[in-house]
Computed example of a mutant assay.
Amino acid sequence: MRFLVLLVALLGAACTPAPRESDRAWVAGRTWVVTGASSGIGRGVAERAGSLGANVVLTARRAEALEDVARTIRASGGEALVVPLDVGNPDYAETLATAAERRFGRVDVWLNIAGIIPIGRFEEVPTEEHRRTIEVNLGGVMLGTHAALRRFRAQGFGTLLNMASVEGRIPLAYHASYAATKAGIIGLDGALREELRLNGLADRVRIVTILPWAVDTPIWANAGNRTGREARGPLPDDARDVADAIVWAALHQPSGEFPVGPKAAGAVLGSQIAPGLANRIAADMMQRIQIEGAPPAPPTSGNLFAPSPAPPTVDGGMRERWRRDNSAP
């Protein structure tokens, strides 16, 4: 186990792809729709695309946080439209797409990034939290995908990026409904890519499935948590690095799955070579990090049903807290 942790840490030191200034020509003036844009990876993607001159349509539940993202984008040379919505609502996607078209004329890139997570033994997490996770993580992605693809087919081009996870390939213990939604996104995207191929659109409409490793974002502070311990992710990656890689993928990655960074790529490879072993190793790691190693914390529904008061930042501060209390795994 110690060898595995060391190997993963060394792989994580390698760089992930990032957009360059030369990519501005492919971004400036084009319209990017970003869900979950108030914090975490979504905010990082929105700000990076805006810095390259994109028109960025921002949605999440916290209007004030979205306005702050919009100010950052405008200050860096992009344009921004704030449309506060809950992606768990059935009409959100059409409302968002219509607002984007009215302001900017069309949608070029659509990124379904919004997500929530409940943590705990499956039977100890309330069923309404499992249902809400499915509504947001999978239902919200399906609605956004439906709205985006209808427009991409009509205009003959477009790029769709859906946020899955390495957990869609290696489901983690204590993350059951979250892992289920991420596996669902992988299946959804795989089926849709074949539909595009059969309809002669595979060269003009791309669907990229994003598979990050755990990322240091506010999702952990916002998690629904029934473990009795502080929510933690295993060896999380830097949120800005992951956001930059996703922007790069929107510009350069062919249709298909995109593991973000060496840790994610190694995990996906492991799931293909020895899936049973990979699942056991991942479960043992979560037992040690989440159940045995994290400090006590009270039960909470986090931000599953209402926006969290946690700061709407890109970085979650988890790695810094570990360094400060010398409790990093």
Score class of each variant (00 low, 15 high):
R153T: 05
I117S: 14
F258S: 12
I186L: 09
D244V: 06
R131L: 13
E21Y: 00
S308E: 05
A164E: 04
S76V: 02
E124A: 15
V87A: 11
R226M: 13
L172T: 09
M286I: 11
P17S: 15
G44L: 09
G266K: 00
I210E: 08
L196K: 01
N326S: 10
P299Q: 12
D238G: 05
W32K: 10
H146P: 02
R20C: 14
A25T: 05
V109M: 06
V125P: 04
L4N: 09
V247C: 05
L85N: 07
S39L: 03
D315A: 14
V247A: 03
G302K: 12
A13E: 11
N303P: 00
V166D: 03
A310H: 10
T16Y: 04
E94D: 15
T145D: 13
A75T: 11
E194W: 01
A176T: 09
P118I: 15
S39H: 06
A179V: 05
P218V: 15
I119A: 08
D241P: 00
E167L: 04
I186K: 07
R71W: 00
A14I: 10
A25F: 00
A60Q: 07
R226A: 10
G36L: 07
L111R: 03
G77Y: 02
G228S: 09
L160A: 06
P212G: 11
S39W: 01
G144K: 02
T217W: 11
R193V: 06
L160H: 12
R153P: 02
R43P: 07
I73A: 03
F3Q: 09
A148Y: 02
